[in-house]
Nucleic acid binder design. Structure first.
Length: 554
RNA sequence: UGGGGUGUGGCCAAGCGGUUAAGGCAGCGGCUUUUGAUGCCGCCACUCGGAGGUUCGAAUCCUCCCACCCCAGCCA
């Protein structure tokens, strides 16, 4: 039974009544991606739904590749999809399935339909077929080949299959109703000739089944009880049912449609994502700005954050636009509770503690996390340190009273209170060094003179730190609806979505950070070592997401 | 204009004829804080696309209207 702490969605309600009525005795779902691109956040919702349903009801969820169109499908994509599903934390029941496993069975069923007088080989070309189909408001008209003899169709189908027919010359069509108000019932194409090698079946076939002729039968073969798909397939449902009713299939699965996930400031269309990759607007399918599962992973988003986000979304028939901030909430929520803390200075400014000896070296202890159970780390503290340029102001102002400025104090995070004395500028007028004095006896306690610092600043020892590059990301699109209406989504690309900071200084302890392991760089945000650009010589961190900030300096 | 689907606060969304219309995100106040983070407290729809109707009583039932989404690939 499903978890009853949350209201049941309409699919769970259906499952419950199917179970009660005995129509179904085991829940079987499936996630059926076409291997023609990488999975994105929209797929994550479907994955969480389908695998989640199976878990809740003690059933099975199959991973099935819908590989019925060899022109667009590649093995690279199936490998990537397998990796993404597993990374998200799901395991399918039994072997991985492929629509192509059923090509033989599908072909026999096509012959069956022909013999039943319910399918025929049509020789209309694409343009003619469009004309015969009619329009949304006018009925179509029958193909001149509609009543051709069964034997003839059988023979023609065989030659299509054997490669004796050129592409575009013939199709196999279901004989349903050319006057149906539902256009997808106007003698839909079941098989088309494609003399294209398939990533699994090679050149064994010259014809490939169309989605509508394949999907429901695949479900029936696998014993899928609840075939969940997105809303745009709703008008295909009568056709799904028609094949199930008219074929000697081993089961009668049913299709249910829910609203797909749309996220603002992003696009979730494999076609458009592929275009971003192919045209080089991003660094591949796993560019950290991409809403792909692999992009989110490379960016440092934990799988559990994605799952929690998906679980928070309603499964309903409304197709809404979810705020990016909603996803961000779950990312921060997870990272805040689990990411170890560290200090990284992104725009280093040297601070010299003039009242400390040159060789001062002190090992400070700092907690890994506000949750003290996560242990401690050691921070070397020396006479020279780096703080962020942003945390020093030449002149004090009340609005910026948490910054360090001459005569003012600040606490070094996990360390002492310091007070700035003066500063040094270079020829360009930039502050390049701050001289300060350490206020004694302020480790873990406020200054004895009662002058308590307002701000806390992160820092790193100038002698004991490591250089790194930090990649800061902003949304890929500056338009909340980059592909609405007739807009060209490429025009909405945010030119400042990637900012690379070099010469940043981080704790030595992060030298051997594991790629993907999240850290909170205190007062900045969450980061992880990049799996692609990091090397033995170069340490690169991706910003997963900034800390929430309700404060605006300007 | 044919068919299918949906309309509850800025966003997501519960609600399935009967207390003052859940909750989350965002936002706004305040408290705590060695992260301007986190946490905590408070505020945020006299109203449920609109208009009628049924009823003692409707966001929930009926009627009409309006808006938006999907369908005319030999894509999925």
């Amino acid at each position: 039974m499903a978890d009853d702490s949350k209201p049941l969605n309409f699919i769970q309600q259906t499952i419950n009544s199917d179970l009660e009525a005995g129509v179904v005795d085991k829940v079987v779902t499936r996630f059926p991606p076409e291997p023609n691109g990488y999975l994105h956040i929209g797929h994550a919702k479907s994955i969480c739904l389908n695998f989640g349903l199976a878990q809740q009801y003690g059933g099975d969820c199959h991973l099935r590749f819908d590989d019925t169109n060899p022109e667009k499908e590649e093995d690279e994509y199936v490998q990537a999809i397998i990796e993404d599903v597993q990374w998200l934390g799901f395991q399918w029941s039994g072997d991985i399935r492929y629509a192509s496993d059923y090509f033989g069975q599908l072909y026999e069923w096509a012959q069956y339909l022909i013999r039943e007088g319910k399918a025929y080989v049509c020789e209309l070309n694409a343009e003619q077929m469009r004309e015969y189909r009619g329009t949304l408001t006018e009925p179509g008209k029958n193909s001149p080949f509609r009543d051709r003899p069964v034997e003839e169709s059988l023979i023609l189908l065989e030659s299509m299959k054997n490669g004796d027919v050129d592409e575009g010359l013939m199709t196999l069509r279901a004989k349903i109703d050319m006057a149906s108000p539902n256009v997808s019932l106007r003698d839909p194409v079941m098989y088309r000739v494609k003399k294209v090698p398939h990533h699994r079946t090679g050149d064994a076939w010259n014809i490939y089944p169309a989605y509508d002729f394949a999907h429901g039968q695949e479900d029936a073969i696998e014993g899928v009880s609840h075939s969940v798909c997105t809303l745009e397939f709703a008008s295909n449902r009568p056709l799904y049912d028609w094949f199930i009713e008219n074929l000697p299939v081993p089961a009668t699965p049913h299709q249910y449609e829910f609203g797909r996930l749309n996220l603002n400031y992003s696009v979730t269309s494999k076609r458009k994502l592929k275009q971003l990759v192919d045209e080089g607007h991003v660094d591949g399918w796993n560019d950290p700005r991409m809403p792909t599962i692999s992009g989110l992973r490379r960016r440092g988003v934990p799988a559990v954050a994605i799952r929690n986000f998906c679980d928070s979304l309603a499964v309903a028939k409304t197709d809404g636009m979810v705020d990016m901030s909603q996803l961000e909430h779950f990312i921060r929520d997870e990272l805040n509770t689990n990411a170890p803390r560290a200090m990284t200075v992104m725009r280093p400014l040297k601070v010299v503690m003039t009242n400390l000896p040159e060789d001062h070296l002190e090992q400070l202890q700092a907690p890994m996390h506000p949750n003290l159970d996560m242990g401690n780390r050691t921070l070397p503290f020396t006479r020279e340190i780096y703080i962020d340029q942003n945390d020093f102001k030449e002149e004090y102002s009340k609005k910026l009273n948490k910054k360090l400025s001459p005569g003012k104090r600040v606490r070094l995070r996990n360390g002492y209170v310091i007070e700035a004395i003066d500063f040094v500028k270079n020829d360009s007028g930039e502050v390049v060094q701050v001289n300060a004095s350490l206020v004694p006896d302020t480790l873990g306690t406020d200054p004895a003179d009662g002058v308590k610092p307002k701000g806390v600043v992160h820092w790193v020892s100038a002698q004991h730190c490591v250089d790194c590059d930090v990649y800061l990301y902003d949304r890929l699109f500056s338009d909340p609806l980059p592909d609405a209406g007739d807009k060209n989504f490429l025009d909405a690309i945010n030119p400042d979505s990637l900012q690379i900071l070099t010469g940043c200084k981080t704790e030595v302890g992060l030298t051997d950070a594991e790629a993907g392991q999240p850290y909170q760089f205190e007062r900045e945000g969450y980061f992880c070592k990049d799996s692609k650009n990091s090397s033995a010589e170069r340490l690169v961190f991706n910003q997963t997401i900034a800390l929430r900030s309700t404060w605006v300096e300007a």
